[in-house]
Design a protein around this nucleic acid. Sequence first.
DNA 1: TTGTAAGCGTTATCAG
DNA 2: CTGATAACGCTTACAA
Lengths: 337, 337
Amino acid sequence: MSQKEFVSAREVAERAGVSRSAVSRTFTPGASVSPETREKVLAAAEALGYQVNHLARGLMRNESGIVCLIVSELSTPYRATLVSALTERLQNAGKIAMLINTDRSDGSVDRALRQAIRYRADASIILSGMPDKSITQQCLKSGLRLVLINRDDDQQGPLRINMNDADAASHILDAFLQAGCRHLAFANSQSGTPSLMARERGFVEAGRRAGLEVQVARHGQTGYEAGKTLAQHLLSRTPRPDAVFCATDLIACGFMDAARQEFSLSIPQDLCVAGFDNIEQAAWLSYDLTTFSQPVDRISEAAVAWLSSPPEQGSGEAVTTLTLKTELIWRSTVRRA
Amino acid sequence: MSQKEFVSAREVAERAGVSRSAVSRTFTPGASVSPETREKVLAAAEALGYQVNHLARGLMRNESGIVCLIVSELSTPYRATLVSALTERLQNAGKIAMLINTDRSDGSVDRALRQAIRYRADASIILSGMPDKSITQQCLKSGLRLVLINRDDDQQGPLRINMNDADAASHILDAFLQAGCRHLAFANSQSGTPSLMARERGFVEAGRRAGLEVQVARHGQTGYEAGKTLAQHLLSRTPRPDAVFCATDLIACGFMDAARQEFSLSIPQDLCVAGFDNIEQAAWLSYDLTTFSQPVDRISEAAVAWLSSPPEQGSGEAVTTLTLKTELIWRSTVRRA
DNA sequence: TTGTAAGCGTTATCAG
DNA sequence: CTGATAACGCTTACAA
């Protein structure tokens, strides 16, 4: 009954009284068709509701136009923002996003990449987890380009886009010192992703350089609940921290809520707090969080530009790591000198 | 150099010393292959890193496995949660999600649907905006199935999944009355989507039945900033509302922040607030918002189940509208009787 | 169970 | 500029 029956170029050709090639050319930018035939074809296509079959086109051109977004915890504000920006940029570049959820389990990213291969994606952008070396190689050998965002990896081939995590950490430590804080803490999640660990290391080392020891706690996933728990742990210690750098804004929000409601602390009078990501919630009045903004637009711009450009020819290893600068957004959770 | 060169079934066949059909059959569940050949094929495939080309398979089978998610404002917590849930369910059902961003502009959804047709998607799930009637018809005629979530539409063919918005509104109004509130307000966005308007109408009418007039304000998009502005408007009126039902949680969060910080109101003592969606932030300690939870899991379950099942045969018009129940999540922003 | 061959809807090549 | 024809990589009768 309602069998799938899309209209094909043959039908359009028949109705327009031209050959199939003419139809194909009409929908191929830069192909040579006379204005008259083009007109006839377009009219017929319009009438029939014809749309080029990208499955078939991809098969022929060896270029599907598909880019896979591989991501876990998509519902998280930062991830959602990034995925949204990437999707939009891809569309504007004439590509289309395929979305694959991963979880924390082993091989989850590998499975996602296999799926990308099956759909002959032109590229994959990995926002979470790390693929196995062998599958990475398989992708590259197949011509499937890879972009890794905020992941650490030493292989040649993929484009890596990272932030200046350590710099940022050292920067905010200075701000804490200027605010007169001396008991510093870092609130991290247990997930231990490269960028999170880079922030932690950067903060601890900057503290050491200043002659201060930083209290570090790691707990749970990278979310609000973890932030609450981390506050319970860190704020019970003596001496109680008077400044905390949270690995993400979500952690910072949880931390602040617990600090205020369970420890009756005033921010920033009793406690300075800084976060990372500059998610929308960081700007909400209840938090008004001083934080580092990840340049989501530039990240997606760079990613899409790279994978839209023709692949590197020859062996001239071009730049494959891009370190973008975060921006410190001053709000009210850190006292100004 | 790095030309795209995926390994094809022919190569696998050669290496395994069998025919191409044998390879195809090995990767077709339920096809008849002897254990020995299957073994040989799998070994060769493994060695070569072969993955079935879903573009070609889709072309033959007339079934791509692709489902388009059409959505605007993906970075919004509720949308992101829903997209995440849908994507995951689709994966578990052996399908894959294609993501298309839309904006508020005219024809944005239509363009997205055309893209869905081009990739020969098996179905599209529309979370935002409304498609034109003609393109809807074109989709259905082509066999591209449609699911509309929280949209209003009178056409036959698509599956519609809606919430019991009016019921919920009337329910929360009762709660406000029991809390002793008499000056009711409804804070809406200007976007005027069907579900938002249904909540508004339901609330206003329930108020009328109780002999109370409801103050209604509409402003901006469906977000936090709109909530702040709406609070500024509504809380300046006399008599000042003592209970407000916000069309979404995001609006409620903005409303609460403005009520507390700009009007120095205590919630729920001076003002009762309720929201809709039960986004993660509603559970944060700073808000602890009483709200209605949309059954995201059941929504995605229903959507995926419907589009995975064989299309309706014959003319027996099956159920095409599903109204799911929201659940009132009691937290602390509405006084309990 | 296996291989052969036809066909899915395109695009690219090559005469005209 | 146009139309035939050969791919692309797969599935699926059909015949062996």
